[in-house]
């Protein structure tokens, strides 16, 4: 090999190596499109407050993007597709707010009550709307379900009947809830071993609640001598409740 050739080859290699030392500008993240994602869903039962005619619930969204030192607003719109059973006048969607310096925003939705809500489950599909300031990405749709329908608790026939009466009827269960101030009675000794978080109520408590209900029923019937408390639906519709 001629010295010249070797020299050039070496120089070339050195140059190549030096090229690697060149400062390269890294692409860093730019908040050009802050986006909202993950609109939450909700299920509400008016059983929690049987006297209420409306209930305001809050759905949450999350922000992907930079925090800002001021509140930003966003919008959610109803989607009237074939799985939405709610009518426009049954609910009210407020303007959503993403508070300053927060990655979580919320939007208030007022759920209203009427005959349909009292007797069935009402579904409403919702969608996050993009705006100039806040775009949207994954999880822009969600569903809200509400009802005032009282359904027979899953543990009624197996356990609650011994303390709260048999058979089940909607009016009677409403009475039970009003007297006890409770909307659920998670008593199920055959499942409490496997799932003590769900079925946490003890025998002493359900027994005491049952006695409280019985006392209230006796009082009601004494106060209404010709009009005892009757089942309003179910297999014993029209018959007096007995405990």
């Amino acid at each position: 090999m001629k010295p010249n050739k070797a020299f050039f080859s070496l120089s070339f290699l050195v140059l190549l190596l030096l090229a690697a030392c060149q400062k390269e500008e890294l692409e860093i993240y730019k908040d050009e499109s802050p986006s909202l994602y993950g609109l939450s869903g909700y299920s509400y039962s008016f059983i929690e407050d049987l006297t209420a005619q409306s209930k305001t619930i809050y759905l949450t969204v999350r922000l992907s993007g930079e925090l800002k030192g001021y509140d930003r607003s966003f919008k959610v719109e109803p989607v009237f597709d074939n799985t939405t059973t709610a009518k426009p006048e049954w609910f009210e969607i407020k303007e959503g707010v993403l508070p300053k310096n927060s990655t979580e925003g919320r939007v208030a939705i007022v759920l209203k009550r009427n005959m349909t809500v009292d007797t069935s489950l009402v579904d409403l599909n919702l969608q996050l709307l993009p705006s100039k300031e806040l775009g949207t990405m994954l999880g822009t749709r969600s569903k809200v379900t509400w009802t005032a329908k009282i359904i027979q608790p899953v543990n009624w026939n197996q356990w609650l009947r011994y303390y709260l009466g048999v058979p089940f009827s909607t009016g009677w269960y409403k009475f039970v809830m009003q007297v006890t101030g409770r909307t659920s009675f998670p008593y199920n000794p055959s499942l409490s071993g496997a799932d003590p978080v769900t079925w946490w109520m003890g025998a002493g408590e359900i027994q005491a609640l049952g006695l409280k209900v019985k006392e209230a029923l006796i009082k009601y019937n004494l106060e209404h001598p010709n009009d005892p408390f009757v089942h309003d639906d179910g297999p014993s519709k029209g018959l007096p409740v007995t405990l």
Binding site: G204, Q207, A208, L211, K212, K214, E215, I218
Partner: peptide, 8 residues
């Protein structure tokens, strides 16, 4: 605990 008062 006492369960509940005796009913009449």
């Amino acid at each position: 605990q006492f369960v509940y008062s005796f009913l009449a």
